[in-house]
Design a protein around this nucleic acid. Sequence first.
DNA 1: GTCTATATCCAGATAGAC
DNA 2: GTCTATCTGGATATAGAC
Lengths: 201, 201
Amino acid sequence: MSTIRERNKELILRAASEEFADKGFAATKTSDIAAKAGLPKPNVYYYFKSKENLYREVLESIIVPILQASTPFNPDGVPSEVLSGYIRSKIRISRDLPFASKVFASEIMHGAPHLSADLVEQLNSQAKHNIDCIQSWIDRGQIAPVDPNHLMFSIWAATQTYADFDWQISAITGKDKLDEADYEAAAQTIIRLVLKGCEPD
Amino acid sequence: MSTIRERNKELILRAASEEFADKGFAATKTSDIAAKAGLPKPNVYYYFKSKENLYREVLESIIVPILQASTPFNPDGVPSEVLSGYIRSKIRISRDLPFASKVFASEIMHGAPHLSADLVEQLNSQAKHNIDCIQSWIDRGQIAPVDPNHLMFSIWAATQTYADFDWQISAITGKDKLDEADYEAAAQTIIRLVLKGCEPD
DNA sequence: GTCTATATCCAGATAGAC
DNA sequence: GTCTATCTGGATATAGAC
C-alpha cells in the first residue's frame, strides 16, 4: 500500500476541485491541475484515467454530505429545530467544502451532464421527501401554510449561495474572505427569515 | 439597412443564449450555435467576429435589466413596497430572460472572467447601495435589525435560483415547465419570508 | 453578403524510456 | 511508479469562391 499513491491522489484531487470550481469542467486544463498539484500531467492520467473521471470524483464527493444534511427532515420532528439544523448543515457545507460545493451547483445548473441518473434521482427524491415533510407540518397546523416547494427552494438557494458566489460576497462586504462570524450571521439571518415566515399570521 | 442582417443577428443571438446557458462558455461550440440558428458557421463569425464577442453580447444584455431591478431602493421608500417590488422584478427577469440570466449567474460564479471591470464595479456598487438603504431603514427603526448584507444575499439567491435551477425545480415539482402561477407563488413565498423576517419581534 | 473548404492551434491522452 | 516527448482529434477562425 504505497503511501505515495495516496498522497499524490490527494494532491491531484485537491488541485482539481479548485480548478473545476474556478473555471468549470470544460474550461479547466488537466495541465493546470497537474501544475497546481506540483506533478507532471501524465500522473493525472495515471491515477484517474481521464479528466472526466477526475471530475466525477470531485463531484460525487459532495453528494453524501448533501444527502446527509437532509437527515433531520422527519414529520415528527419539531419544525423550527429541523429547519434550523438543515440550514446550519447546508451553510457548513458551503464553508467547509466550497470547491466541491461550487462544482456541484455548476453541474446541476447545466443539467447534470456528468452525474449518473441514479444520483440525480436520489437527490430529487430527497428533495421531495423534505417537501412532503414540510407539507405534513402544514396539514397538522404546526407551521403556517407557506408553499413548501418554494420554501425549500429558497432555503437551498440562500445557503448554497455562500459557496457559489463567495468572491462576490467578499467583494460586497469588503472582506478578503468570510470568517466564522460571517457564516454564523448568515445562518442566523436565513433561520430568522424561514422561522418567522413559517409562523402563523 | 439590410433587414436580413438584423434577422440573422437576432437568430444567432437567440441560439447563442440558449447554448451558452445550457453548456457554459467553454463547452459551447460555435458550430452548434450556427446549427441551432439554421445558418452556416462562418456567418456567426461574420456577424460577431469571435465566440467571445458573441458571448459578451449575450452576457451584457442582462446587465441593464439587473441594474434596473434595483431602482426602487431608496432610503425614503416604504421598506415593504421596495422589497416586494425588487423581488418581483428579479423573479420576472428569471422568468422572461432565463437564458441570459443563467449565463450571468454562471459568469459571476466563475469570477466574471469575461465581464469588464467597469460593469463588475457597477453591479457591486449597486448592491452596496441597496444594502446601505436597508441599513438606513434599520437605523430609523422602520424594520427589524436583520443583517442587511445577508438579507440582500438571500433575496438575490432565492430569486436567481428560478433561472439557474429551472429544470431541477421542474423535476421536483413534477411540472414540465413552470407557469405563470408558479412564478407568482414563488414571488409570494419569498416576499413573505422577507417581510416577516423584517418585522420587529 | 454567403458559405465551402481549409489552416491553425491547443488540449486530452499515451508511448515508451527510466 | 514516474515523466519526457509526441500523437491526435476537434474546435476556433479564416481564405477565397460565389
